[in-house]
Simulated scan of single mutants.
Amino acid sequence: MLLYKQKKNQAAKVNRFLISVTFLGSAGPIRFVVKEEELVAAVIDTALKSYAREGRLPILGSDLNNFMLYCPIAGIEALSPWETIGSMGVRNFVLCKKPEAEKANESEKLPRKGSGSWKSWFNKSLNSKISSH
């Protein structure tokens, strides 16, 4: 009986939260619940599966190695696939495909920083909403 109560209390300590993942070029974000200690790679995989299950366009594919997850608040660097999703302390993310040049460099085992392609898209979208009077 005591062992059962301990397991129940340990399971209750798992922190879960709702995240929102926006896909570049898609209509809107996908929201789902994740565990705080879940890896970024697992979150990318879940997001891609949810995107495909909903039949969204454009069709992206399912290889999580072709995508990068960004936290727009934290900067222009992509999150490492081995980080935990709760380490950032945020709930909103942007998922985009890796540029072809970066995929080629990755296969050569050369380290490369994120290209910031989502940042230029984000700046363009902000500039189009700001009107000059």
Rank of each mutant, 00 (worst) to 15 (best):
L64P: 01
F32R: 06
V40Y: 03
D45M: 11
L60V: 08
R53C: 07
I44L: 04
L64T: 00
F17H: 14
I30P: 00
E38I: 08
A52K: 14
S50L: 12
Y51K: 01
L48D: 01
L60K: 04
E38W: 05
E38V: 11
G28P: 07
S26Y: 06
F23P: 03
E36G: 05
L24W: 06
P58S: 07
V21E: 02
E37S: 11
V34Q: 03
S26V: 07
K49H: 09
F32G: 07
R31L: 10
A27N: 15
E54K: 08
F32P: 05
R56C: 03
D45C: 07
F17T: 11
A52E: 15
V33C: 08
F17N: 11
K35Y: 08
G55V: 09
L18K: 15
L39G: 02
A27I: 09
G55E: 11
V21D: 01
T46A: 14
S50Y: 07
G25C: 05
A27Y: 13
L39F: 11
R31T: 13
S62K: 07
E36T: 12
S50H: 13
Y51T: 01
E38Q: 15
K35T: 13
S20N: 09
A42T: 12
L39A: 15
E54V: 04
A41I: 03
I30E: 00
I19F: 03
S50P: 03
D63Y: 01
S20P: 04
F17G: 08
V43G: 01
F23W: 02
V43T: 02
G28D: 14
T22H: 15
T22S: 15
R31I: 09
F23Y: 07
E54T: 06
L57D: 09
G25N: 05
A41V: 11
L60T: 02
G55S: 06
I59G: 04
S26T: 09
P58H: 08
